[in-house]
Amino acid sequence: MRPLTEDQVRAAIRNADADEIAAIGMPHDFILTDWDYLDFLAWRDPDSTRRGVVIVEHEGEPMGIVLRATDPARVRSGMCNICRTLQPGNQVALLTARRGGKKGHRGDSAGTYICADLSCHENVRLAHPLAPNEVRPLGQADMRLDGTRHRMEDFVARVLADD
């Protein structure tokens, strides 16, 4: 992902009004962000426990959405629909976003189950433990990274689509 300033990040958010965008707290370590490492920028707002933000690159331009989190599930385990990692149920939450355009003005939203702390880009990089005689296939990590990035981009595009 190409480096962005705080102003560029805020300008990329497309499903919130100016007051809501101004109220978003940036991550405490934003100035230390390793942009070459990121497939997308995602964080939970340090000023609001239920708000999160995702910024992706779409056709070379940053696009972002504001997410609202529900309480984490009370199930034993859950799967994130973005990074496809199985996690304890309290670490996966339904995050919804107000749709863009006319649908958003009518109150429509879209949602999916995502890692509650929005750490999908880190979780997908963790290697699964291998069985004693198992060999990790070449390219498997790259496929997981690409899939995670594409699923997040598709989710953001679905939220912002004005059908």
Rank of each mutant, 00 (worst) to 15 (best):
P3E: 15
G78C: 04
I82E: 02
R68A: 14
M79W: 00
R2N: 15
L145M: 02
L160E: 03
T112W: 02
E20G: 14
L67W: 08
D108Q: 01
A73H: 03
I24V: 10
Q140L: 10
I82S: 08
I31G: 11
G147M: 01
G60E: 06
I65N: 13
D162H: 00
G52D: 09
H105P: 00
E57S: 13
P72G: 00
L41P: 03
M143K: 09
V56H: 05
R106Q: 02
L138N: 12
D47E: 12
R125M: 08
H58D: 14
M1T: 04
S48L: 06
E134I: 00
A161C: 00
R10H: 07
H28K: 04
F155T: 14
A97C: 09
R99K: 09
P72N: 03
S119A: 07
M79C: 13
N81Y: 05
E6M: 09
E153F: 04
H105D: 12
L94I: 04
L32D: 15
D108P: 11
G107R: 06
V9P: 03
L41D: 06
M26F: 11
W35N: 02
R84K: 02
H121K: 07
P3R: 11
W35P: 02
G101Q: 07
I114E: 10
G107H: 03
L86S: 10
I114M: 13
I55S: 06
R125T: 02
P137I: 12
L86A: 10
I24N: 05
T96W: 04
V53Y: 15
L94W: 07
N133W: 13
H128E: 02
E6P: 08
L118Q: 09
P88R: 13
K103S: 12
A22T: 08
L32M: 08
M26S: 03
A110N: 10
S48H: 12
R84S: 08
F155M: 07
F40G: 05
F30H: 05
A73Y: 05
G52L: 04
G89Q: 04
R149A: 05
